[in-house]
Design a protein around this nucleic acid. Structure first.
Lengths: 372, 372
DNA sequence: CCATCTTCCTTCGAAATCGAAGTTATGGCG
DNA sequence: CGCCATAACTTCGATTTCGAAGGAAGATGG
């Protein structure tokens, strides 16, 4: 989709504009030019007119939407032991989302080929006939070089180091391919749910601790590892050596994996981060204390970052995030230690996009590639 | 300067483009359109053609420069006891820079009116006749709300809280006015000297510790306090209460003011941060040890931020920056503790723009306002 | 020193975009 | 109910921008 038409489509797809008038305001084009292009887009079946919107004091706008038959995106979010997979229409609305078991330790070739097959599967079962697939994307639980689409020095993905994921995935589909870190995808997904926030920190709390950063409305990738907070040194009495080789990393104290190992040592059996949340909800004091301490440690780290980048909101997601004491103690630490200027109007809350945040984020980022 | 012409002027003024061909590449306009607009700009006296550039394998480009008579910018950088003042042409080249004594504690009205008089002074003495003043700007050693141009909750500027600096300065000159935090200006100035770096952290070490952040080539302001690192809690044995009310802030250990007060207690008299640098250069062990410790503490804080935003470079400026051990121990801490992915290709070095960095930054930011 | 390749820049008709002046639809208000 | 203010589009001639072709100037390499 070239030039001006692509711009207009993207504005509609991203949910920023719903009428010709809004398109004119946001795109900077003249209203007359917008009308012309929109007419063409409707003619070629990519946009549809759908009833009237609400008046803002004058004539009601004619609502524009992406045609459901404009195309589909196939997206995935890889975890250690399972993957979420979904089909989205071009405006990012999920047609279907499934969770399937999948061992990332099986290595990149097997996993990616499995994913490609799963996509075909979903398409056959849920793809409306005649609607073309327009892009594929996946989240990876490790650092990804955005330029090459390769995994770089992942800590929990044996055999994946430097593997060209985008290339392998692209071999199955001759389409735009997106490969991105999972926390970054989550951040991109949340960003759509926080349209008024220009700067956003999105925390993914699960087995590990990840963080995605939105600066000025766009995902900040840095050199590919931006957002890492798991290897920050925390103030602590004891001394634990992290897998990265340094002492007292946040991850060694506050990650789901760390919490689970402490609980298991205490004879309380847990297998997944969600089990910890369940324990907390059941009022098991050992679990609650641990989670509260984790929140405090995370909050103290966030303190530095909040003073530094002044986000408009901090969003906490991931499988540990439903545990109330976690977010409560994060809040407490941040509000206590940060500068008033930085915490005034700072919102700290749980995910608005829910468990599909990463899939939605993949859709959002893919859209730019598809309509470029 | 409206529309396309403004874009082209800005590209030339900012030093990004030097020929019609470069303008075409960077602006996205067609080469033919660029030629047309450039001809107009030359006709109206804003651009001049100046000899030929170096060939890149074909015909040599005809170099374009902003006409020296296109306009002037008057810029200042306020410190606690003195101000740097300068006149720049629109391409940011200084015509004259002076340092004059000036007590910020005299309050905002007196200081700003004094500044306006000083600008008139400089214009009369060094402004080429017939060249119009096109904008004024100043740096402030405290937080500034970018939207309103007001000072917000400064710690060392009695009487300035919430004062509308931009408004008062604008009353003297009916022109675009820029009011910005001094570390932010320094960052904007350095950014021009590091054209290949998209993400930059610029540290201002003086009586206090400031930091400006460039993300994606643009100054990141956040809510007006972005870049603050002075009130981060540091790991420490003793316990010192900072002016902000919390314990063990970085500023209370590693700022020039903190170093000076320790030295003075030890009977070594110092009055300005530069005196500390002199002591270090003279090999006074007490001073060297202090500076080294300050560098380590700063470096440990930077560690967190480097992992988080993955800058391309960290630039250390300010009156303490010439002290070799400072930057050496910052380097040591950062390289030791950060993730390899974040430090690979990370450059940590002293200012490229020198003492005028803030003035150059003011020019750079003002340009956008003037040629908007 | 001559052919060839690059790069820079201009020319000119075609195409896209603008913007001022309409047209259509709606809410509010006496 | 009729008038007015407001907003959402349309129409259409004027303007800007594009892009393909070509000329100008210099590098390269025999």
């Amino acid at each position: 989709m070239r030039g001006a038409q692509g711009d207009l489509l993207r504005l509609v797809a991203a949910g920023h504009a719903e009428s010709r008038a809004e398109l004119a305001r946001l795109s900077g084009l003249a209203a007359s030019s917008v009308s012309l292009r929109v007419e063409e887009l409707i003619g070629s079946g990519l946009l549809v007119e759908e009833g009237a919107g609400t008046s803002r004091g004058g004539r009601r706008p004619r609502r524009l939407r992406l045609s459901p038959s404009a195309g589909l995106l196939a997206v995935a979010d890889l975890g250690a032991h399972h993957a979420r997979l979904g089909l989205l229409d071009l405006s990012g609305t999920p047609l279907v989302v499934e969770e399937r078991p999948c061992e990332i330790a099986d290595g990149p070739e097997a996993t990616i080929d499995w994913m490609a097959a799963a996509f075909e599967d979903l398409l056959a079962a849920h793809g409306p006939p005649g609607v073309p697939l327009r892009g594929v994307g996946t989240g990876i639980p490790g650092p990804v070089d955005p330029a090459t689409g390769r995994v770089v020095a992942p800590s929990r993905m044996p055999g994946w180091n430097n593997f060209p994921v985008a290339e392998r995935l692209g071999a199955h589909f001759d389409l735009p391919v997106l490969v991105e870190n999972d926390a970054n995808l989550m951040a991109a997904g949340e960003a759509r749910a926080w349209p008024k926030c220009e700067t956003l920190m999105v925390l993914k709390t699960g087995s590990g601790i990840g963080c995605g950063v939105i600066v000025n409305g766009a995902l900040h990738r840095g050199r590919g590892a931006a957002g890492d907070i798991s290897h920050v040194r925390v103030r602590s009495d004891s001394s634990v050596t992290c897998s990265c080789g340094h002492d007292d990393c946040l991850e060694a104290y506050a990650s789901g994996a760390a919490l689970m190992s402490v609980l298991n040592e205490q004879g309380i059996e847990v297998r997944r981060p969600a089990d910890v949340v369940a324990l907390v909800e059941d009022g098991v004091p050992e679990a609650t204390a641990l989670v509260r301490n984790a929140g405090r440690l995370i909050g103290e780290v966030l303190t530095v970052l909040v003073n530094f980048i002044n986000p408009d909101a901090i969003v906490v997601g991931g499988s540990l995030s439903p545990a109330e004491p976690l977010i409560a103690s994060i809040r407490a630490a941040v509000y206590e230690r940060c500068l008033p200027l930085a915490t005034r109007d700072l919102e700290i809350s749980t995910t608005r996009s829910g468990p599909d945040a990463a899939l939605l984020g993949a859709g959002s980022l893919l859209l730019d590639a598809v309509l470029a």
